[in-house]
């Protein structure tokens, strides 16, 4: 059993619930940054002997996910002059209960899957990773703004990375770095897209982008 990993797992679960209940954009970004930090610490906490490449991966993870991406999101938020209050499609209390339901399913699944345990402490990795993934998907679905969808995607990716780092898959580092690059590019593009959408349409409410099609129809007629 590994005490540090268990504590990190508890914080991961708490951060998911906080993300579901949080009503301010800036807080959401901070929570995602916190998840990035927890994720960066995970391989250091899980390893019995810390190698150089683990420290490198942790450093890269933390500097990218806990510092750079949140800064980028914050900049996009300020540039696009997004309203700070989220506009949820599902209310906060209902979001909490739905995320809790997702966690119930992931714990149940994690129990059923019976994955081989290569290190005793990591039995919680599967359910926690599933919970984080489901929370991310839920945030993508249930929040309107483009930035919150990026936040949801980042959470989703954190879940995948958590699964990888906690299962300590061999040569996981290479895979990790690949995913990290993907995410970085995606957030970068999304950040630019958010600003472009904003400057073109004066809002970044992704719900209203559905109207685009109808408008062009109208123009064609």
């Amino acid at each position: 059993m590994n005490v540090q990993v268990e504590i990190l797992m508890a914080f991961f679960l708490l951060s998911c619930l906080m993300l579901a209940a949080c009503s301010r954009m800036l807080h959401c970004i901070r929570i995602v940054a916190l998840q990035g930090l927890l994720l960066g610490l995970m391989p250091l906490a899980a390893a019995e002997h810390i190698h150089m490449h683990q420290i490198g991966a942790a450093f890269l993870n933390i500097s990218l996910k806990a510092v750079l991406l949140p800064l980028l999101l914050k900049a996009a938020m300020h540039k696009a002059q997004v309203k700070r209050e989220l506009e949820p499609l599902v209310g906060y209390a209902a979001s909490l209960l739905i995320v809790l339901g997702g966690m119930f399913i992931s714990f149940w699944l994690g129990r059923k899957l019976n994955l081989p345990e290569n290190a005793g402490a990591l039995r919680l990795a599967v359910p926690v990773a599933f919970s984080v993934v489901l929370t991310g998907l839920f945030i993508i679905m249930a929040r309107k703004k483009a930035i919150t969808q990026v936040i949801g995607f980042l959470t989703f990716e954190n879940g995948i990375a958590l699964f990888g780092s906690a299962m300590m898959i061999e040569c996981g580092l290479a895979v990790e770095l690949g995913i990290l690059l993907d995410v970085f590019v995606l957030v970068f593009i999304m950040g630019i897209a958010v600003m472009r959408i904003n400057s073109a349409f004066e809002h970044i409410d992704s719900d209203k982008l559905n109207l685009l099609e109808e408008q062009t129809h109208g123009a064609a007629k």
Binding site: V99, L124, P127
Partner: peptide, 18 residues
């Protein structure tokens, strides 16, 4: 308070399943 309830229930899931 709903958050507190969810966290407590999560603790119960964690306990019973794992």
């Amino acid at each position: 308070l709903a958050g507190a309830l969810c966290i407590a229930l999560l603790a119960v899931f964690c306990l019973t399943f794992f």
